[in-house]
Design a protein around this nucleic acid. Structure first.
Lengths: 349, 349
DNA sequence: GCTAAAATTGTAAGCGCTTACAATCGCTCG
DNA sequence: CGAGCGATTGTAAGCGCTTACAATTTTAGC
């Protein structure tokens, strides 16, 4: 039953015949509340449709009832999927979700991480999506009193879920290498003054390692700082086509970048795999359709999983068990945009 | 300058040599504050890096400093774009953004709209994205004390931004009709117990009108309730292929649905426009690549524009100027998935 | 059955803000 | 030059919750 006016803890106290204080404790499952009291409070609260005011709760030292999701951007396919999955988890756990998009801007980034106390005022926890943090920031965050969990950020002092980005990039790159391609370009993420998207850096690492294992060097001209949108990929590939000898294969940091690359090729009368092999990471719903070779990863799962870990941390704040790290599986999917390098292929040397 | 501990209004009061009350008024630009006092307060607040505690403010009857964005889903391309654009606007105006995805579930929907008082506890305003509301809900929302603005919901007692969905659908459908297609299917939005996505309904209306203008009737079997994702479109088209005579043209409610339809065609050895003409609405970044004919609409603009209107309403709460409605331009883009119906085309009669 | 310790419950003081309402101040006007 | 008024500022009472700490009840031990 819901009354016209919002019920207060006072109402619950009167109805249950207990003091406000006991009600408060019962509602939050704190110790030192008799079972009987607990039951009476639960009943009364239920009957009144009582929900604690987040503002009052927070002001008095309690929780806000909301968590923030911080992502480099909210439009990219990966983030949209992750955010929605996490939001669902949070909503079901009774938390509001505050969305903070860094919009790939260093300024926004520092505004957010520069005042963690202010953030703590507004949310109880933070879910970080692929945000690159330096040691000081990690320390500050861990000490901020905020519960933290993340996606795509291994090696961090809180629970993390992701794929092994370095490995996934290595797989993709190795696939190209094994098909005889040795002049590889990479469409990497945008660099934000040392604070790129975390996964981007890891994937670049994997790319480099694969090359190194074949005694190849990463040619700086063939590392294009792209960003991760379709448009970014298109621009990067256009640049590649315009400014230098075309490599025989391209590793795109994510499928959307690869889509853009494919578009650019088409615009210049070229195509994959005829003129250049292309591979991405993600297995975006469109990839099958375009025949894009890629390394698949479970996306919504990562968001839901990490959100769930955060919820647990929120529920048992005192327990400080060691941070866990979870790598979900990826799989190389060979489709039609990659093929063995042929003698007849153009050879730009 | 930022102190280690969060500054309170008390600190500002002391530093500026004024009372808390005056500081509070000055900070919120209320009348009856001398210019001198205003300046002193601003200086002190600046020096302390003071930001009012949203919890305390809300509790005392003020504002929360955040707004909610409510969308049917957050993963669809249109919503991801709109949400990010709106979030940017809100962030720049100093508001936090609470993301609420209805996840196409009636249950979530009623949980949100069933307790507007609870919502008002947490946010100052709401940005509705294509949410279908009945008269009672519209009334309740208007009376809730929440500032409201929307995208894609004309005829509503608050500011709205959108395209003329009925018209856009009419254009797309008419395009098909004028090319000689008369057996048309529509891949429409999902119906949520009378509460579909608002735009879906309007687009279906436009489809119907175009048919009616050509003395054609809407065949119920050719109205597929799809949803608006790629997967939804794929499923819908598959159903169409499996269960009935294939229509010669298909109008998909949005480009992603159309992508899915194209995929399903390919899976069955069919293609557009050879076997069936396909058109969508959106002009998604991939549409050019796929040659998808469509009706383009400015997407991020709608989100930013509506968010901006909401911010203005939040800033001048007292003024009750009439709600405005803004239609942004759309444009038919004819590409390669639609063509004139030919004698040689299969004719399913 | 009585007392000390443990378990439960209540009292009251804020948390940092907003907002009637009261108090002051600076002028204008007779 | 003092009353009267509007403009400005201050006082103080909450908003609905959490949380020491005090009060009370229960349990256990002898």
């Amino acid at each position: 039953m819901v009354s016209a006016q919002r019920a207060t803890i006072q109402d619950v106290a009167v109805l249950s015949g207990l003091s406000i204080c006991t009600v408060s404790r019962a509602l939050r499952n704190l110790p030192n509340v008799s079972e009987k009291a607990h039951r009476k409070v639960a009943e009364a609260a239920e009957k009144l449709g009582y929900k604690a005011s987040p503002a009052a709760s927070r002001l008095a030292g309690g929780n806000t009832g909301s968590v923030a999701i911080i992502a480099p951007t909210a439009t990219a396919w990966f983030f949209a999927q992750t955010v929605e999955a996490a939001e669902e988890m949070f909503a079901d756990a009774g938390h509001d979700t505050v969305l903070i998009s860094l919009r790939n801007k260093a300024e926004v980034r520092s505004r957010v991480f520069g005042d963690l106390a202010a953030l703590r005022q507004r949310v109880d926890g933070v879910l970080l999506l692929n945000v690159e943090l330096d040691a000081a920031e990690i320390g500050a965050l861990a000490a901020s009193g905020l519960a933290v969990a993340s996606v795509g950020m291994s090696g961090v002092p809180w629970d993390n879920v992701g794929i092994d980005d370095e490995q996934a990039a290595w797989e993709a790159t190795s696939h190209l290498l094994e098909m005889g391609h040795w002049d590889l370009a990479v469409l990497a993420g945008r660099d934000l003054g040392g604070h790129s998207v975390h996964t981007s850096r890891r994937r670049l690492d994997g790319f480099s390692r694969a090359l190194a294992e074949h005694d190849l060097e990463v040619h700086p001209d063939l590392v294009i700082s792209a960003g991760s949108s379709i448009e970014d990929g298109r621009r990067a590939m256009t640049e590649l086509i315009a400014n230098r000898a075309l490599p025989s294969a391209v590793f795109a940091e994510c499928d959307e970048t690869a889509f853009g690359a494919l578009m650019a090729l088409r615009e210049h009368g070229l195509s994959a795999p005829k003129d250049v092999s292309v591979i991405g990471i993600d297995d975006h719903p469109m990839s099958w359709f375009l025949g894009l070779s890629t390394v698949s990863q479970p996306v919504a799962d990562q968001g839901a999983f990490a959100a769930n870990l955060l919820c647990e941390r929120l529920q048992n704040p005192e327990q400080d068990h060691a941070p866990t790290n979870h790598f979900l599986d990826t799989k190389l999917i060979e489709r039609k945009t990659t093929r063995r390098k042929r003698r007849t292929d153009k050879n730009h040397d």
